[in-house]
C-alpha cells in the first residue's frame, strides 16, 4: 500500500523530466543547424586560448562552509517531526528541544570564534 500522493510525485518527476527534454532535443536534432567545427566548440574564455587545466584545486573555505552546513542540515531534520507534534508536547519537552538547539549553536559559536566563518 503506497500513499497515492507519492505516486503522483513519482509520475510528476518522470513527466517533469520529459518537459524540458523535449525542446532541447527538438532544438538540437530538428531545428538547429549542425555545422560544428573545432574552433566553434573550443572553450570560451574571453577570446584568449585557455591556459592550463580547468580542474584546478579549490579553496579550503568552500569545504569548511559545507561541513558546517551538513551538521546543521542533519540537526534541523530532527526538528520537523517535533514541530508537527508541538501542540501536544509539554513545556518541559519544548525546553529540552531548545537545549538541543543550544548545543548545536554552541558548536557554531566555537566555529565563529575560531574565525572559520570568515571568507579569506
Amino acid at each position: 500500500m503506497v500513499d497515492n500522493n507519492w505516486i503522483f510525485i513519482g509520475v510528476f518527476l518522470l513527466i517533469a523530466g520529459l518537459f524540458p527534454a523535449a525542446p532541447i532535443i527538438m532544438g538540437s536534432m530538428i531545428f538547429g543547424p549542425k555545422k560544428g567545427n573545432a574552433v566553434k566548440s573550443s572553450t570560451y574564455e574571453c577570446g584568449v586560448e585557455t591556459v592550463g587545466d580547468t580542474w584546478v584545486q579549490f579553496k579550503m573555505q568552500y569545504y569548511i562552509f559545507t561541513l558546517v552546513f551538513v551538521v546543521f542540515d542533519v540537526g534541523m531534520v530532527f526538528l520537523f517531526p517535533f514541530a508537527i507534534a508541538y501542540q501536544q508536547v509539554s513545556l518541559f519537552a519544548a525546553l529540552a528541544v531548545m537545549g538541543f538547539l543550544f548545543i548545536i549553536v554552541g558548536g557554531l559559536a566555537y566555529v565563529w570564534q575560531k574565525g572559520a566563518l570568515r571568507w579569506v
Partner: peptide, 12 residues
C-alpha cells in the same frame, strides 16, 4: 530564436 540556434557542446 533559441530553438533554431545551433547546439554546441564544448571541447572536453
Amino acid at each position: 530564436k533559441l530553438l533554431i540556434k545551433e547546439d554546441i557542446t564544448p571541447l572536453g
